[in-house]
């Protein structure tokens, strides 16, 4: 591919992304305005008088026509203003920034567990294709893919927290440690390490380990399956046989050649799995009182905080578009076949 054609390809891609984003905005706006919950009532309370109610109603701009409201929304979003949360009175984006680190911390440990479990298992399954390790791994990973994670979370909490007392209960750390370490990265484990508060580190890991393991297990299913399929492709290819013929050991062939060749594909798969953890986070955060993005989204859905819900949905959309784009780019740059 010549540099110029690559540039035009890139420009075209940017154009389609812009259109996709606009569509996304229409979608989020429609969702926001369709929501039946009464945000005004949530603000003024059950016993407020009608004139207080109307005062807030006009303040929020609900008396204007819908297209006008959409244009106002579009303008606001383009200028980086995602509105204020009806619940907290704060800019929604600030609220989301405040809850995001909790989810990222959880998701990061989860993906480490998921990839750490999924990739070796996937390789093993491919190498031992159709023998008993392959079958065991298949059942194990399908279980992870099939469990209703909110249910597994509840059961695990009952066993490991209530009965055995091995891990912490809900929340990111024991409550009395909250606010003790200065927030630098907002990842509590890292912040506490920086502050050399080892009790806090331990408490944080204690609270992280259960939800992260469950999330990691559920995402390992996808990673295992994809790794296995990529590896099988490689193993069946000619050069592997050639390498074997040349006298390389089986282990060397698998790790030095086959595995090295699928690393780019694996990175994109892990990136996509990382994004998909957002979905599991919505459910697992509810079960573990985890003050992250998922809990923020669901609690605002229940209370009808439109601006917050719209921005959350928009953000998830943007994250996924970006991840898909990333995997496209990675393929294009590294994959010899598309070069």
């Amino acid at each position: 591919m010549s540099p110029t054609s690559r540039m035009t390809g890139f420009a075209r891609q940017l154009g389609t992304i812009a259109i996709t984003l606009l569509g996304l905005l229409v979608l989020t706006f429609a969702i926001g305005r369709l929501m039946p919950a009464d945000p005004v009532r949530a603000i003024v309370g059950e016993e407020a008088t009608q004139d207080t109610y109307m005062q807030v109603y006009t303040q929020l701009g609900f008396d204007r026509p819908l297209p006008v409201q959409f244009l106002m929304y579009l303008r606001d979003v383009l200028t980086g203003d995602f509105g204020t949360s009806i619940r907290t009175g704060q800019p929604v984006i600030n609220d989301i920034m405040a809850v995001m680190p909790a989810t990222l911390e959880l998701a990061t440990l989860a993906i480490l567990i998921g990839a750490g479990l999924g990739i070796p298992l996937g390789v093993l399954a491919a190498v031992k294709k159709d023998r008993w390790p392959d079958h065991v791994i298949r059942i194990f990973s399908l279980m992870g893919h099939s469990m209703p994670i909110f249910w597994t979370g509840m059961i695990a909490l009952l066993i490991f927290y209530a009965a055995l007392g091995w891990v912490g209960g809900g929340g990111r750390i024991s409550d009395y440690y909250i606010g003790l370490v200065p927030p630098v990265t907002n990842f509590i484990v890292i912040d506490a390490m920086l502050a050399r508060e080892w009790d806090v580190v331990r408490s944080a890991l204690n609270h992280l380990i259960l939800p992260a393991s469950l999330l990691g297990y559920s995402s390992s299913a996808y990673i295992t399956r994809m790794t296995r399929s990529f590896m099988l492709d490689q193993i069946n290819q000619e050069y592997i046989t050639t390498a074997r013929v040349k006298g390389l050991s089986r282990r060397q062939t698998i790790w030095r050649h086959a595995f090295l060749n699928i690393r780019v594909q694996l990175v994109t798969i892990v990136a996509l799995a990382y994004g998909a953890l957002l979905e599991g986070a919505v459910l697992i955060e509810t079960v573990f009182s985890w003050p992250g993005f998922g809990q923020y989204l669901t609690s605002n859905l229940m209370t009808g905080d439109m601006n917050a819900v719209m921005t959350c949905v928009l953000l998830v959309g943007v994250i996924f578009i970006a991840l898909n784009l990333l995997s496209d780019v990675l393929y294009r740059v590294f994959d010899p076949r598309t070069r």
Partner: peptide, 17 residues
């Protein structure tokens, strides 16, 4: 556009609406 969402999150938003 629809594909760019995990199904649970988009369903959540739709149901809320």
């Amino acid at each position: 556009i629809f594909l760019s969402f995990p199904s649970l999150i988009l369903s959540l938003a739709f149901v809320a609406a």
